[in-house]
Nucleic acid binder design. Structure first.
Ligand SMILES: [Mn+2]
Ligand SMILES: [Mn+2]
Ligand SMILES: [Mn+2]
Ligand SMILES: [Mn+2]
Lengths: 225, 225
DNA sequence: TCTTAAAGTTTGTCGAACCTAACTATTGAA
DNA sequence: TTCAATAGTTAGGTTCGACAAACTTTAAGA
């Protein structure tokens, strides 16, 4: 029932609010590529419809109702991405854009068919958890690579999917979901992180490292705090 | 570039105009479920954009430009139907509705991937010819079942896909694309057509018969004119 | 020829979703 | 405490695609 535009506002707020941070007009506008008055207007409407609560000049927060919409959309988005990747063999850097459109128009029946066809999967091609039909919000797994201590080894579990360039960069490095990376050194002053990946050494910028999440392999022995 | 609404008007005109019959406001309105003034307004716009020519009070006719849009859309529609049917195993009576939406939003890149994935197919699940990328308009194959003479045998090559009920009816009869049917008798006064299909006798109404197209098997011997 | 029903068009309105310009609130330096 | 810079809102306007009401054309029958 909500329009495509409404769905996209809700999804944007969901992504921006993280674990219940208030979200501001300016950030919604920037993230969606619209001007602030458009956001003000739509926010008023979304609040009236009960999708979010709005304290003027103090930002918005999704209601349960709004979160439900967002999580459903995320489920669709991620199932579509996985379907395009697995079935049509479309590389992981090209699926997001198509999914961004299809998430709004694919019928529920079709989504559930896709879900079953894919074997009731848990994760999309970028490692993101696929929410269940129940509307429970999925947690991000792992921790950002830039927060891993020197000497620790992690298994890549999630990467950011909004920037195709970034995904192609990872592909070039042969870094994928499941790769094991050993953090050798944090260069100081916002410098790069030195990694060992499949016997290869490489340096990764902080911006990139923040978009990669890993599960730490508990190493027996030395563990800095 | 044309909006979804514009694409649907053009497609509707294409379907109504057959082999260059002028198409009238009232028929477009009925077929699209909008009121006549909406059609008048849109037709003026479509004429201005060069998609069709309009003689006020005398109907419209697609230009080459308009036909091109229509045929492209048909290609998408039919490839999507076949994809849903083949890949996700969705029955032929449930695919049209989803395709009706998806035809407007699936990217060209995705369509061509689907085309190749399906092995560059020629026909959709209802037997309709899938147009090529070149924009040539596909012909209907065969002749309507109600025009087959008594005693002749035909192979079902196309069935109408707009009405799911009708398709379920055919499924119930075990009549599918490729079925062989022998016309035994035309009952008079608009009565049913008596068929033999796989050793079974059955009677089919005229309305249904008109929506089924068959290729006649040239029978050696008796051939009424 | 005249009349009228049906088809077609024009005009004015509406809701969505966007915009620009102008105004207001918040906040953190000076 | 004052005051800009920044953020947010309001007011007013545009475009798109639909609508109802009112008007016009066409074509058929009396
Ligand atoms: Mn994505
Ligand atoms: Mn979206
Ligand atoms: Mn169809
Ligand atoms: Mn359509």
């Amino acid at each position: 029932m909500p329009s495509r535009s409404i769905e996209d506002y809700i999804k944007t707020v969901y992504e921006l609010q993280g674990k219940n941070q208030r979200v501001f007009t300016k950030d919604i506008a920037r993230s969606m590529g619209v001007k602030m008055p458009s956001v003000s207007g739509m926010v008023k409407h979304l609040a009236a419809e009960g999708y979010l609560s709005h304290k003027p000049y103090k930002g918005v927060l999704l209601t349960k109702r709004g979160q439900r919409i967002a999580v459903d959309l995320l489920r669709r988005h991620r199932l579509i991405e996985l379907f395009l990747n697995k079935t049509l063999d479309i590389p992981w850097d090209e699926i997001h854009e198509d999914a961004e459109v299809l998430e709004h128009v694919i019928s529920n029946k079709l989504i559930e068919r896709i879900f079953n066809f894919l074997g009731r999967p848990k994760f999309d091609p970028h490692g993101h958890t696929i929410p269940g039909k129940d509307g429970n919000m999925p947690l991000s797994r792992g921790i950002p690579l830039d927060q891993v201590n020197e000497g620790e080894t992690g298994c890549v579990v999630e990467v950011s999917d909004h920037d195709p360039e970034f995904l192609r960069y990872l592909t070039g490095l042969k870094l994928k979901i499941g790769s094991e990376v050993l953090v050798k050194e944090h260069a100081p002053f916002g410098g790069p992180i030195m990694l060992k990946l499949e016997r290869q050494s490489l340096a990764i910028g902080l911006d990139a490292a923040r978009r990669i999440r890993v599960d730490i392999k508990k190493k027996v022995g030395k563990r800095s705090n």
